[in-house]
Design a protein around this nucleic acid. Structure first.
Lengths: 210, 210, 210, 210
DNA sequence: AATGAATGAGTGTTCATTCAT
DNA sequence: AATGAATGAACACTCATTCAT
């Protein structure tokens, strides 16, 4: 167990370790997103990192934990971007929601083209990791729920049920890469815009409202 | 009939065989839907059927073939129900679309609680299945595209892009079981209704329109 | 157990059974010679006969027994041809030996192109079948030993050791198909002749002696 | 050397690995020679090495690769001994050929008592091995063809066809262990000598010639 | 006499995990 | 901090054998 010998590890060493962990997690996240949990072996991860499989076990207790970490890293980056965007946005709720939807789709399509496997399709995770995934989803919902509730109060939005609306948006956005992924350039841009506009209908905003 | 060799099997035997095949396919379909292709072993299928793995090979050439058969059986049943409903429906496009959405969600939630794996995530399947799944999806889209296009022409609907609308509906409906599955009784019924109504917004129909 | 019910089976039925057994054995022999014991499954045999695997068990106790029968049939035919030739031959021992060698090679190359697997390479047979194979070899040796001994006594031949000579001849002749098999037409005929002549050297007969 | 990642393994480790590979290959070679490709399972190999099957895959990509390595190791050792003998021999072609024949038989009988499976029966091996085996045979033929051609030019030998002579010698020598294997001590020595002398007849050398 | 069905042991292969060094 | 080695439980698939009908 590293760092256990001399009371606490020096900050320098800890930083180095963190950096290594980050490298591993990033690589793993990429692979899991590309091929899905089952189709990725630890050998694959190790090879792409140019280390041996055994080394991974120095940093992670097993495949599941590595995957959880990957999920968290992936999700954290994603959510931070949305949270920052929401915080920075200055304007109507309509504009803010549209910006959030658009950004979510962009991230999904461009950065994590296969993340739906991780966030949409349930898998039997060990309990500890199920919690972590659920937390991510809650955080995601909070961001959008905030805007929608605010817009509803302001009379800008009209939703049958905020919960259901959130589910629909999440499902459609996360699924987006599978059909936008085929497109490129202008066609993709247009598809993303259309999707954004379509989802705005769920809160009663037609394009003419902007 | 002396000397008759390797004739076709009697109809009675053939019926029996067909029934057995159906049993196997059903069981396999359930398992694949529950856990996904990779996470289901032929031993799992065999055990649930209370036979040995080897027996499965008497009926199917391998895991892939079994899976294809399962997918097709599952999808055929589903699509047939939708097609019949659509054909039988007599009334406005608004009503027909709502009925289709409602039925799709009911099937998803009640009958194939985890089928999203089958129809949402394409990469999870071996190449051999990809075709079969795509065909199913095309068939599904045709049913809904029909109503939407008709409604648009009749001025009942207003969609930004039929394609995008179809994708959103499909994503949300197929994903439904993961969040409606937790509910029971009245709460579930209400959730399904709300989801139906929410999706109607995508073609510009608010509840007041009915 | 067939034929057990009414004391003895009628000759007509027995003949029919024998014919069936012959069919099976022939087919099996062909397959074993083509691909070798391990590479032939009972399904292969059954399919070529256009019956089901189960039927084979009505006539044979198992794969090994079927193979033994095939070997015996193969070997009997072979040996009979050599024995008849030897008995019919009227002339010097030189001529008789040459004729036997030539015939053996012809049979090996033309009729049982892969029999070396069966007669040259030892396999761990169950005891009962090992005996049967050994008997075949003994019978083969007897045919050639006869001529050679006779020739030696007559002063026509000169062998260092009859046993060793027999082994060499048998090895070379049985192996022949693997190198003559590639040839066709005239080239093959010539190769067979050359081989015959070469083997005659083992008993001290150069071509000029004829 | 900090930060050095995935460097080449130290020579000490590499040596150790090579030794292990040698162990495995030797064991596999023995087994394949004893029973043939199909009849040897990786479990057999593993058990004789007292490791688990999985370990073999750490060193070899699969059964075929292991078999290829085994064949090559076996054949290389054999051929090297013959080549060295031929190079070192100083004397007439008669003496050199006799020495080569004798050595070949000794190796076959004493060191690789069942190698006939490797060099006699081509069809028993998967296609991937066929090349390797053929190469070995070519190398073998070259050694003996050399002496024979030289002897023929020098008037020491007389052969009907060098090719056919080579085939006969090869067949008889390789087959030798199956009949000399039973003998021991003096009897075996005598049998080997007789076989050598008998094969010398194929190039027209009777014992008196020496 | 023959079939369809089922079995169970075995076969090559993969892979998460462990561990001494 | 990392490696090379080994393990053992799975897995898809094959096949000789059995048996009720």
């Amino acid at each position: 167990m590293p760092g256990q010998v001399s009371s606490a590890p020096s900050p320098r060493i800890e930083r180095k370790r963190d950096k290594r962990v980050q490298e591993i997690v990033r690589t793993a996240a990429d692979l899991f997103a590309e091929r899905g949990y089952d189709a990725v072996s630890l050998d694959d991860v190790a090879e792409r990192l140019d280390v041996t499989k055994g080394s991974l076990y120095y940093y992670f207790a097993g495949k599941d934990e590595l995957c959880t970490a990957a999920l968290e890293t992936l999700g954290n980056g994603w959510m931070e971007r949305l949270e920052e965007l929401s915080a920075a946005y200055d304007g109507s709720d309509v504009g803010r929601l549209r910006a959030l939807l658009h950004e979510h789709i962009m991230i999904a399509v461009r950065d994590y083209p296969a993340a739906l496997r991780l966030f949409l399709v349930p898998r039997e995770w060990p309990a500890s990791q199920a919690r972590s995934i659920k937390a991510m989803r809650t955080r995601h919902d909070a961001i959008f729920r905030d805007v929608i509730d605010s817009g509803v109060r302001a009379g800008e939005f009209d939703a049958i049920s905020t919960d259901v609306t959130l589910q629909c948006m999440h499902a459609a956005m996360t699924q987006a890469p599978t059909w936008c992924g085929r497109l490129t350039g202008r066609a993709r841009t247009r598809a993303i815009d259309e999707l954004t506009d379509t989802l705005m209908l769920l809160v009663g905003c037609s394009r003419a409202d902007d």
